[in-house]
Deep mutational scan, measured.
Amino acid sequence: EDEVKKIVKRLIENGVDDEQIKEIVKRQGVDERIVDKVLKELK
């Protein structure tokens, strides 16, 4: 989960929008619920 957080944070800093972040992270095989949780925490 910490790995996911790092990735998502980097994507947000690069101006990637939420939908794209979800797609990218899902392609890495991460559960969507984890992605949603991380996005909420970082906003």
Rank of each mutant, 00 (worst) to 15 (best):
V16H: 14
N14V: 09
K26D: 02
K6G: 07
Q28W: 15
R10V: 13
L11D: 00
V8A: 03
V30L: 13
I21L: 04
D18I: 15
K40I: 09
V35Q: 00
Q20M: 14
I34L: 13
I24V: 06
E13W: 10
R33T: 11
D31C: 03
R27L: 12
V16L: 15
E1V: 12
Q28T: 13
I21H: 00
K40F: 11
L42N: 02
K26P: 01
L39G: 00
L11N: 01
E41K: 05
E3H: 10
K5W: 12
I34Y: 06
V8R: 00
K6I: 12
K9H: 08
V25N: 02
K43E: 07
N14T: 11
V25Y: 05
E32I: 12
D31S: 11
L39E: 01
L39F: 05
E32P: 14
K9F: 08
V8Y: 01
R10T: 13
I24A: 04
R33C: 05
I12C: 03
K22R: 14
K43V: 06
I12W: 14
D17W: 06
V16E: 05
K9Q: 14
D18N: 09
N14R: 14
E19Y: 11
V38N: 01
V8W: 01
Q20W: 07
N14D: 14
E1A: 08
E23T: 10
D36Y: 06
E13D: 12
I12Q: 12
K6F: 08
K37E: 06
I7C: 06
D2F: 08
E1Q: 08
I12F: 10
I12V: 08
R27W: 06
V8D: 00
K26W: 05
V8K: 00
K5C: 05
I21E: 00
D18Q: 10
K37Q: 09
I24C: 03
R33M: 11
I21P: 00
I34C: 02
E41G: 05
I7F: 12
K40T: 09
D36T: 11
V8M: 08
K37Y: 06
L11C: 01
I7T: 08
V25G: 03
G29Q: 03
R27Q: 12
V16D: 03
V25L: 15
D2V: 08
R27P: 02
V4P: 01
R27N: 11
V30G: 06
E13C: 04
V35E: 00
V38W: 11
Q20K: 13
K43C: 04
L11S: 01
D36V: 12
I12P: 00
Q20L: 13
G15W: 03
V30C: 04
R33W: 15
R10Q: 15
K26Q: 10
R10I: 14
D31T: 07
V35P: 00
R33Y: 13
E41V: 05
V4E: 01
K37T: 05
L42P: 01
E19G: 08
I7N: 04
V4D: 00
K37L: 08
V30S: 03
E23M: 12
I34K: 03
V35C: 02
K43Y: 11
D31F: 05
E3D: 11
V16M: 15
E19F: 10
R33A: 14
G29M: 03
K37A: 09
D17A: 13
V16T: 07
D2K: 08
I12M: 15
R33H: 12
I21Y: 00
E3C: 08
V4L: 12
K37C: 04
K9E: 09
D36A: 12
E23I: 13
K5E: 05
G29P: 02
K22M: 12
V8L: 06
V4R: 01
Q20P: 01
K26L: 14
Q20S: 13
L39V: 03
E13Y: 10
V38D: 00
V30F: 15
L39I: 10
V38S: 02
L11Q: 01
L39A: 01
L39K: 02
I7R: 06
D2S: 10
E1L: 14
N14M: 15
V8P: 00
V38I: 15
K40D: 09
L42Q: 03
E3Y: 14
Q20N: 10
E13R: 11
V35Y: 04
G15L: 04
E19K: 11
D31Q: 07
I21K: 00
V38P: 00
G15E: 03
D2W: 09
E32M: 13
D36N: 11
I7E: 06
G29T: 02
E19H: 09
G15K: 05
D2E: 14
N14W: 13
V35G: 01
L11E: 01
L11G: 01
E3L: 11
K22C: 02
V25W: 05
E1H: 12
D17N: 13
R27M: 12
D31A: 10
G15A: 03
Q28V: 08
I7A: 06
Q28I: 15
Q28G: 09
D17P: 15
V30E: 02
V38A: 05
V16A: 09
I7L: 15
E41S: 07
I34R: 04
K43P: 04
K26S: 11
E41R: 05
V16R: 06
I24K: 03
E41A: 10
E3P: 05
K22G: 02
K26T: 14
R33P: 04
D2G: 08
E23C: 07
L11V: 00
K9G: 06
K22Q: 04
I24N: 03
Q28K: 11
I7Y: 10
K43Q: 10
R27V: 05
K40P: 03
I21W: 01
K9D: 03
E32L: 11
D31N: 08
V16N: 08
D36K: 07
I21A: 02
G29E: 02
G29W: 03
V4N: 01
K37M: 09
D17V: 08
K26C: 10
E1C: 06
E1P: 07
L42D: 01
K26Y: 07
V38Y: 08
V35D: 00
I12E: 02
V8E: 00
I12N: 02
D17Y: 06
